[in-house]
């Protein structure tokens, strides 16, 4: 046990006195930033795709859009996140001649990827709303788009909030692969602390604890949001 407390001492020394906490804070910031921004972009993309996929398929334009959306979802669900990061960073960007910081790359890929997953969650959410809600909104003269935006999607989001929270938690944890393209996340911060002393036990344990704490906080946040959104429900 003596050895373990020695390791903790050493870890705390690097963390506090030699400025290791700065790296951890940057890592924490990037991890949260990538996950939050990814979730927001993903929700927007996912909602758009879901809205297209529930459209009645009368016209050719809708059919073409629907085909494109299925292709998109298939593409992003069919490859691992790491592969998408690597392909985007080492293939797409050089081909297009664009320079981007690795954090921006990570946010983009996470947004595109979660968009594919969220679109399916959102589609289920939209289908779970009573069709009478759409009819009621159309009967007073609202357009399909307004009815969708004002009435159906808000109710769909309420229904899928627990699942959306799950997606957010998954995103937070998946950020641990962004170091593949050089983005400084939590994993990279603790890895560099460990590599200073070749002593990884305590840094990785601390990293695990931080992840758990973040996820617990998110879970709590979702519960609060759910309670607020449920105010219109049967008591």
């Amino acid at each position: 046990m003596n050895g373990f407390s020695l390791k903790i001492e050493k870890f705390l020394e690097i963390l506090i006195e030699r400025g290791g906490y700065k790296e951890v804070l940057i890592g924490l910031q990037n991890t949260v930033l990538i996950a939050v921004a990814g979730l927001i972009i993903g929700t927007v993309i996912g909602t758009l795709i879901a809205a297209v996929r529930v459209l009645p398929k009368y016209s050719k334009i809708v059919k073409a859009l629907d085909g494109f959306c299925s292709f998109y979802v298939g593409l992003f669900r069919g490859t691992p996140m790491v592969v998408q990061l690597l392909v985007f960073y080492y293939v797409m960007l050089p081909l297009m001649g664009i320079r981007m910081s690795s954090v921006v790359v990570a946010i983009t890929v996470f947004g595109l990827n979660s968009g594919a997953y969220i679109s399916e969650i959102m589609r289920a959410g939209i289908l779970s709303v009573d069709p009478g809600q759409m009819e009621g909104a159309r009967s007073v003269g609202l357009s399909y788009t307004s009815a969708m935006m004002k009435i159906v999607i808000p109710q769909a989001i309420k229904n899928i909030l627990p699942t959306l929270g799950n997606e957010f938690i998954a995103l937070i944890k998946e950020t641990s692969v962004v170091s593949f393209v050089g983005a400084k996340d939590l994993y990279l911060a603790f890895q560099s602390i460990g590599s200073g002393t070749y002593e990884y036990m305590v840094p990785y344990l601390a990293m695990a604890i931080i992840y758990i704490v973040i996820v617990c906080l998110i879970t709590l946040g979702i519960k609060v949001m759910e309670r607020r959104l449920r105010k219109g429900d049967r008591k």
Partner: peptide
């Protein structure tokens, strides 16, 4: 059709009030 539906009210068997809006918001929305 939306312009014409504004002049044709409809009342449904299952009411179809907007569940995510209060009573007054239901009436004011359109």
């Amino acid at each position: 059709i939306n312009v014409h539906r504004q002049k044709m009210g409809m009342v449904f068997q299952h009411f179809n009030l907007f569940n995510n809006k209060t009573v007054i918001e239901n009436i004011m929305l359109a």
